[in-house]
Design a protein around this nucleic acid. Structure first.
Lengths: 301, 301
DNA sequence: AATTATAGTTTCCAAAAAGAGAACAATAGT
DNA sequence: ACTATTGTTCTCTTTTTGGAAACTATAATT
């Protein structure tokens, strides 16, 4: 195998953190990686990765080689696209990680369309709400909903995410309809995700702000489940419209506290902070931005 | 084989001008080149070289791919050196073409030393006075003596080349010693090379210039032969000091017309006008410049 | 126009390289 | 000390690659 392929192999080892993980991601035997890495090191005459039985650490020379290799691989990729794309379609594989609900509900149909437009692309998709390390996992593209904390990657907004407090009419009939954030304390709250943010920060329409701590009746890391529970009258949930739009449209769920807002959120496409992002990925992002836009279809009802 | 290796293969085909020549230079069967080039084109989805049975011409896409490939290969080469050289010697192969006389007399001893300093280098040397196309031949380095006409390559002066009209004492005793350029018309001239420059342009020490056409008694494209003939009393020759220095020192040959000069010449190292010249080549040039200098040993007597 | 010479392709076969899988070795964490 | 896990080594199989010669097409020659 060629030098360029060795570079790729090596970069996968570096990014995934171990030979074993790299082998899994690349779907080849770890013995192959071990051998080729050793061969590369022998050819260069210098150790790139210090290996102990339990952990590997990159050497100084390895860091340098890795960084330069990245640039070179980017250039090759770019050249291949440039040379090819004049006469050909987007092709190759698209490795993406998507959050469960948003992925199933909105990305899946969009990807279906995108792949029909570019039949030479093949898709490798991982549904999960875990916040993966895109570099370590070696994915081309992932998605985040909410806010971006660290910026160890590039990001682009693909849609605004609105959410409303809502409940089933039956529930509200029984328990009453809250008029102020404070009223929520008397209600059963169905909350998304972990204990990370224990309180909600409300902005009223006149601009004033209040923080309200709420006990939760149920907690889950899946929006569809929370919607189903709200539908079944289990309480009030703060539901993104991309999940609840249809239920809200049919009045199966009714919004409450419409005069108050919580901090706005966005859906982001995130990708490794490389110098160059492959055309197939950029095009996909463009496509999604175009499809969802500033006022996505699920908010247009 | 890897993509990078394909690039190299392709560039050799482009530079040599044909698959067959590239195969000869690379010492592999032309069938291999044909197959791999076809595979590369297939992968890119575009023809890089238009082939007819008798000649090949590069396509537009091919030109683009070639140029970009060159840059990429340079970067890889540079990276390899950088990564490697911290802990290792110069290595790899050195492909050079040298002129016959100068090569045997002065480059050979220098190369001997250089290779002893860098034992991991292996040498591939072609002695010939033909002016080869360094790109087409795929050599790393070649040498020219005289003047550079076209500049389809980079060049660096490695030594001044002086030459004097001289003859054996016996000859001068018999035929007399010329005092002016014009006097040479009465002498037997042993001339280097072809009919290219039929006349000599003399500069006298006071700066005046005169062109003298001389008939030649003997013509050869080998300086050693001309020196031997002059030694044997066959006539007057315009002999570079790098050939004649010892004969001149021992008075086996005596200079004439020392008050006149011909246009000055230099020995040049020439190399392809790439962006980056390999370290092993640059070091060799440095070494030669250092060794010969502005006043080479053959002129210090 | 027929012939010749040459450049590239194809085909077949041998050789080399690469990957899989299992056994093995080494060590960090328990 | 034990265990789990990581990387290496070994053998075997599969895949890829390269060489040789036959084949094809066409430019140059006659």
């Amino acid at each position: 195998m060629g030098q360029l392929e060795d570079m790729y192999l090596f970069s996968r080892v570096v990014e995934s953190g171990s030979i074993t993980k790299a082998a899994e991601q690349l779907n080849i035997a770890k013995s192959a990686i071990s051998k080729r890495l050793a061969a590369l090191e022998h050819k260069l005459g210098i150790k790139l990765i210090n290996r102990t039985t339990r952990k590997s650490s990159i050497t100084d020379a390895g860091v340098h080689y890795y960084q330069r290799s990245k640039l070179i691989m980017d250039e090759v990729e770019e050249l291949n696209c440039q040379t090819t794309s004049t006469a050909r379609e987007l092709h190759g594989s698209l490795n993406i990680a998507v959050p469960l609900s948003f992925g199933v509900l909105h990305l899946a149909p969009a990807l279906d369309l995108y792949l029909k437009q570019h039949p030479l692309l093949n898709l490798n998709i991982d549904f999960s709400d875990k916040k993966i390390d895109i570099v370590e996992q070696g994915v081309d593209l992932a998605f985040r909903i909410g806010h971006l904390e660290n910026a160890s990657f590039q990001a682009r907004k693909i849609a605004p995410i609105n959410a409303v407090f809502c409940a089933s009419p039956e529930y509200l009939n029984t328990h009453g309809t809250p008029q102020t954030p404070h009223d929520l304390k008397a209600h059963k709250i169905l909350k998304y995700e972990s204990a990370a943010h224990a309180g909600y920060r409300f902005f009223s329409l006149d601009g004033s702000e209040q923080l309200v701590q709420l006990d939760t009746h149920m907690r889950a890391n899946n929006g569809d489940f929370l919607m189903a529970m709200a539908n079944a009258g289990h309480g009030i949930t703060y539901l993104p419209t991309f999940i609840g739009w249809q239920a809200l449209a049919t009045q199966a769920l009714v919004p409450v506290l419409e005069n108050y807002q919580l901090p706005s959120m966005h859906a982001y496409a995130i990708y490794p902070a490389n110098r160059h992002l492959p055309l197939k990925v950029r095009k996909l992002i463009d496509f999604l931005v175009e499809r969802f836009g500033d006022n996505p279809y699920w908010d247009q009802i």
